[in-house]
């Protein structure tokens, strides 16, 4: 049995269920408690769990990220919310140098079970400093797991997995997805595996790989390719960016021989670049066309509505890339 819930509710339910189960789990961040979350993701948690476990912080990202990591070393399981991941740049030293590397530097003694979560990527008309995708930044670093859910099922099942994971996890949400509803299995023990992609629809002519909100464009483009060009598109939702489910990507590529990646982030050293490299290394002989990347444009995000639209990936750009690799 499944029920329709919003991505926002799925995230909240995941945290609440894990907090009921494990008293060492707590949430910390700006406006998470009394304000009920800047985007209302932590709604109701303060009322249920109290101010010891739902902690409003000052605006002090580097400080509370580091404080969370220290608490994680001590055996707590912090969920650190960044109001948006744009502000995580203030804290990135603590995420990488303290959270991600310490297990290795301690010869396996000092793990840090922590989740850094919040909205990532582009919102709407908020300009360059509030519109950036950090997927490739964090996915670059050994010692981290990086997750980017698309729908409510991903959000709930993967956030629960992230909270239970003994390693530091960066959990990249998308503000524009918070209000959308999707079916999610009922019950409080729905967990998805980290590191496994999901084939959203099967196809035989071309593969499109995406994650988070841009998966919308991939799904819409797949419809158009089928209707207008009779091309059967396989759509892969990565779900996890590190470790990358290379196996699922390569298996699909070997079937379709053509592949397009779609992401909101910049093209240079992006997730699509990594996927293209993996394909070169593992399946070069199976390619019937070069891998193409659909990405955000290589510019800081403009404010003007027309320019912002141009800077972002969209369904049309995905269709064009798919046509190109299919030579239609």
């Amino acid at each position: 049995m499944s029920q329709m819930i919003t991505v926002r509710e799925a995230l909240r339910d995941a945290m609440a269920e894990e907090m009921r189960k494990d008293p060492s789990v707590f949430v910390m961040g700006e406006e998470v408690a009394e304000y009920q979350g800047a985007y209302k993701v932590t709604q109701g948690l303060l009322q249920e769990f109290g101010s010891t476990r739902v902690v409003d912080t000052p605006i002090t990202e580097m400080g509370f990220a580091g404080l969370g990591v220290g608490a994680g070393f001590m055996g707590l399981r912090p969920i650190v919310e960044f109001m948006t991941f744009n502000f995580s740049m203030q804290a990135i030293d603590q995420i990488i140098n303290s959270a991600a590397k310490t297990l290795y530097m301690s010869g396996g003694q000092m793990g840090c079970p922590i989740v850094f979560r919040g909205p990532n990527g582009v919102a709407s008309r908020v300009g360059a400093q509030h519109s950036q995708c950090y997927a490739s930044w964090y996915a670059h670093c050994p010692g981290l797991k990086v997750i980017a859910p698309y729908d409510a099922e991903d959000a709930k099942g993967l956030l629960k997995a992230a909270i239970r994971d003994p390693n530091p996890v960066v959990f990249l949400e998308n503000e524009l997805m918070y209000g959308r509803s999707f079916p999610v299995p009922e019950g409080d023990d729905f967990v998805l595996p980290i590191g496994k992609a999901k084939i959203m629809r099967e196809g035989s002519d071309v593969t499109v790989v995406s994650f988070s909100k841009p998966l919308d464009y991939a799904l819409q483009a797949a419809d158009i390719m089928q209707e207008q060009f009779g091309k059967s598109v396989e759509v892969i939702n990565l779900r996890t960016l590190r470790p990358l489910d290379t196996e699922t990507i390569i298996k699909s590529l070997k079937k379709t021989n053509r592949l397009v990646t779609v992401e909101e982030g910049w093209p240079y050293a992006g997730i699509g670049s990594e996927i293209a490299a993996q394909i070169m290394e593992h399946a070069f002989d199976y390619l019937d066309a070069p891998v193409l990347r659909v990405t955000g444009e290589d510019v800081p995000m403009p404010y003007a509505a027309n320019l912002e639209k141009l800077a972002l990936p969209n369904t049309e750009k995905v269709v064009n890339a798919l046509k190109k690799v299919c030579y239609v």
């Binding site: 580091g66 404080l67 969370g68 608490a71 070393f73 707590l76 603590q94």
Partner: peptide, 11 residues
């Protein structure tokens, strides 16, 4: 220093 504050937070 924030890490040390975090140790104290956990205590």
């Amino acid at each position: 220093v924030p890490l040390g504050a975090g140790l104290a937070f956990a205590m």
